[in-house]
């Protein structure tokens, strides 16, 4: 079991919300779809733990950033599909800019070391 986790990157606190919102920006999606999308877009590097995904989805729904509807998928499976609300879009923008700031700040700290290595 331990091996299973080794090649994964632990998600930073608070980044899951950003990833979910960003994924839904591309279109409405159900929970499994969201986890698969994050996984494939990160090149299998990011795997979302189901135990974090659903609480996060329900939390975002409770905050009215996303809303959910029951739909029937292609192979006749009833699924709960989430989509972004207007408030969610605004939230996504602010989270993105915040992420931008954080990654720039971290990059600024890390860049001299990077030069030494190469």
């Amino acid at each position: 079991m331990k091996q299973h986790y080794q090649n994964r990157i632990e998600l930073l606190q608070g980044t899951l919300d950003l990833l979910i919102l960003q994924t839904l920006q591309w279109g409405a999606q159900h929970g499994y779809g969201i986890s698969q999308a994050i996984r494939s877009r990160s090149g299998d590097a990011l795997q979302v733990d189901t135990g974090s995904l659903y609480p996060a989805l329900h939390r975002l729904e409770h905050q009215k950033w996303i809303k959910a509807d029951w739909k029937t998928s292609g192979n006749n499976q009833r699924v709960r599909v989430y989509q972004l609300t207007a408030a969610g879009k605004k939230q996504l923008l602010s989270e993105r800019s915040r992420w931008q700031q954080i990654s720039e700040a971290i990059a600024g700290i890390l860049s001299p070391a990077k030069e030494n290595e190469t």
């Binding site: 159900h30 029951w70 009833r78 699924v79 709960r80």
Partner: peptide, 13 residues
């Protein structure tokens, strides 16, 4: 509904 949602997740996986 929560039951069903997680169940659906399992099926699709």
């Amino acid at each position: 509904e929560l039951n069903e949602e997680i169940d659906a997740h399992l099926r699709m996986a």
